[in-house]
């Protein structure tokens, strides 16, 4: 399963709910305002980094860039992808769960 999350972890619980309920081994893509969850040095970095062994994390680069965050370091294990990479992830996983 590929999970996508689009909410800021500082505003909504989508990121923590996804981390609680996604099955280990899943892919999790942060896009839109959820890209903040992929960054080092935030109040939620440890929460995400602590699950890097359970999930493969991805973050949508164009959404980071739009928010002026392209140069900020992402958490170890988070892969930065573009929209074509997003399409590839959808193809590689058997279903997609969007945490709206």
């Amino acid at each position: 399963m590929l999970h996508t999350v689009n909410k800021s972890p500082f505003e909504k619980s989508s990121v923590t709910s996804c981390l609680r309920l996604a099955k280990n081994g899943s892919g999790i893509l942060f896009l839109e305002d959820a890209v903040f969850a992929a960054l080092q040095g935030t109040s939620v970095s440890d929460v995400v980094a602590g699950r890097a062994k359970d999930f493969q994390f991805y973050v949508l680069g164009p959404d980071l860039a739009a928010r002026g965050l392209s140069e900020k370091p992402v958490i170890d294990g988070v892969e930065v992808i573009d929209y074509e990479g997003f399409v590839d992830l959808v193809e590689e996983h058997d279903a997609v769960h969007s945490w709206l």
Partner: peptide
């Protein structure tokens, strides 16, 4: 919301890749 923009960018990439 960004939803329709994200969907459009995703759809464009998918078509470009031949899906």
């Amino acid at each position: 919301h960004q939803a329709s923009d994200s969907a459009y960018q995703f759809a464009t990439a998918a078509l470009k890749k031949g899906h």
